[in-house]
Amino acid sequence: MEFLKLDHIHHSYFSSTQAKEVLRDINLDIREGEFVSFIGPSGCGKTTLLSIIAGLFPATEGKVFIDGEIIAPHNQALIGYMLQQDYLFPWKTIEDNVTIGLKIMQRDNKTHKVTANALLHEIGLPHVGSYYPRELSGGMRQRVALARTLAVNPKILLLDEPFSALDYQSKLKLEDLVVETLKAYQKTAILVTHDIGEAIAMSERVFLFSANPGMLHKVFEIPSELQQLSPFDVRQHPAYSDVFQTIWKELESLG
């Protein structure tokens, strides 16, 4: 039973001088609780597709279903969106940053503090609630951004290259944390990334897109023995480099 369904998605951007087709006939299904990655060369419309799934703007043509419901602006599913950078609000404390989604949705105020503390504990930063973002390191801030995303208990998580601005060590640690946390909460997630290794290490399936216009080129199933492991351990596994080579060659063939 599919949880997220993209049905014949087309998308074009219009400017005063031209119309540019960015997505052509995208069809795909994602199961509940599944972790998938979108990879592809720049200009393949990955981020556009993510925004459409998030309901930030409608696709020119086609439909998005999440949990059987059609998605459009003003009828957004509960989605969690993580961006390249943390985009924590510098004028709010960490606690207020984590609960901003709840505040926007006007959920009960009293539980905010509890939720924030529980989540900060979960991501391994139990005592930073009263700090301001500038007092934390980049890796810590991105972890707080994860907590902010999870606070509203989203149906699906959209991760738009959330590790790309981090140093390598923080990135590896955060990958493990994200996979672990999402498994614990049994969340469905889509990761957009440039990094093949990251896609293999974290996901169950990898969707490869070709560019100009963006089309779904091929889907790779990650071997089940890798799916069991944490992202860090996947990278050490002997099967990892074979999968890497396969996807690499396919990506190269796109030019």
Binding site: L56, Y81, L83, Q85, Y87, F89, I100, I104
Partner: peptide, 19 residues
């Protein structure tokens, strides 16, 4: 991107302005 963060939570224009 700051506004985008709030829009993913379904923020209204007024909420985006205020927050």
């Amino acid at each position: 991107n700051y506004s985008k963060v709030l829009q993913t939570f379904g923020a209204t224009r007024w909420q985006t302005f205020k927050e």
